[in-house]
Design a protein around this nucleic acid. Sequence first.
RNA 1: GCAGGCGUCAUCUAGCCUGGUUAGGAUACAGGCCUUCCAAGCCUGAUGCGGGGGUUCGAAUCCCCCCGCCUGCACCA
Length: 504
Amino acid sequence: MGSRYDDLLSLFVRRGFLWPAVDLYGGFAGFYDYGHLGAALKRKWEGVWLSYFLGLGDNYHLIDTTTILPEASLKASGHVDHFTDILVTCTKCKESHRGDQLIEAVTHEEAEGLTPAEVDAKIKELGIRCPKCKGELGPARPFNMMFPLAVGPSGRDRAFLRPETAQGAYLNFKREFEALRRKLPLGLAIVGRAYRNEISPRQGTYRMREFLQAELQIFFDPETADAEFPPGSIRADPIRVALAAEKHEPSARDRAPADLIARGLPAFYVHHLALVQRFYLDRLQVPRERFRFAELDERERAFYNKVHFDIQVDQGSLGGFKEVGGVHYRTDHDLAGHAAGSRKDLSVTIDGRKVVPHVLELSFGVDRNLWALLDLGYELSPSRAVLHLPRPLAPVAVGVFPLLSKAGLPERAESIYRQLRGGLDALYDEAGSIGKRYARMDEVGAPFCATVDHATLEDGTVTLRERDSTAQVRVASSGLAATLRDLIEGRTDFQALGPAVERN
RNA sequence: GCAGGCGUCAUCUAGCCUGGUUAGGAUACAGGCCUUCCAAGCCUGAUGCGGGGGUUCGAAUCCCCCCGCCUGCACCA
């Protein structure tokens, strides 16, 4: 166990994808930096994500909002209260316990939201001792998952780093609704950083204290939602789901959208499950059996979600299916909360009716998604190390080499490289043997390699090698950029370029 | 946060128990030679004991503290 994780991290570090932040000083738990390949991959992932999800609606738009939010807004959202746990540590065995749970275990009454002083008083009154060793419990102290900040010279304006990007969309809903001429559904997407003071960050970029979210908040009229997002268009998409009751099963099963609706899920929600699944299976090329939605039961759900399925990808390095995102039906919780907190009316008028729009949140952890893609794509065998990234996401699109470092081949290869690099992520390499250069490109996931040989000098063709099959065809160097773009964007099949070149 | 394990070149690792080595190897990397398509070969080169304190004539090695990583528990939108 753990070796897959080690192999992956070794690749990431050696090649320039990602590594622990500040590792010059020994590292900084919960923080990771991306190197040149990781940053490029992330940019491309964001581009694919934006084009797909903004493309789902005519009224879906990207916005960009602050990472620091004042206390009042996070009080209204519920985060100040619900993101805080009161911890009580045993003086004898040092075990930490949640104060509210200790009290609830005795009284069977809701105890969340008590202050530390109230928790101390209750513990004394009820004579609660450490459930583990019966030792005496120490004083209660608050632990909030949000990073507090003191804003301004006085430091009296309390604020926090945002624990999720979503609040930026809710805070700006009214403005955008007006600017976009009062139409629902309205989609507001944010790609940005969020911060949580995780107690024990672990497992690479899986649980971090600073991370990148890509979220689409869809504001809609609950009265007409199922008509707005009809299940008809996704009827032919069986959805891979593990229901809450069967979440300990290792996999998932395909269920017809109609079955899920019959189980009580809203049709508009099932509609979006199918769309998210298409993104993973088609755009990110995740193998079907390694993808699933996992339903969360009431205990596991966040305080604001009415329906919640995790988006999960099966990852060898992390020991199985792990969450990379979620589809959350947040109802009117957020807009109603901000309406109350700000004392502004956030309802809108649709067809003469006043409604507070409901929100469906499609939420993605970008770092988790990148890790998952790299894990799924990395094939490490005694004979080859290949990163099978989807072509549009590969940080290096094409390697350009001279077959030999002499006879004018490097000059010709470099000139082809210079023509390509304007519109493509091309890389020139003449170090080592040709086989070594192919191996280098395989390991960073470059889908193609173009090699200049003596025939190039005579007829202007180069060999073009495809990463996954290692097959080669001869193509004209003059149209290489267009050919590569067609291949990367899926307009051309590699096989259609011509007969494969025989290997000597 | 608790418990256990761990930390040596870019990567994987030998050395640590039993203190004294020019800290060794492999891979990778750089330069050169060779080479007409898949990590070949030869020559040359650079890079390391997580950080800080202590013990000692002498510390990668023994002790303490810190940082980080892994696993389990707890926590987890």
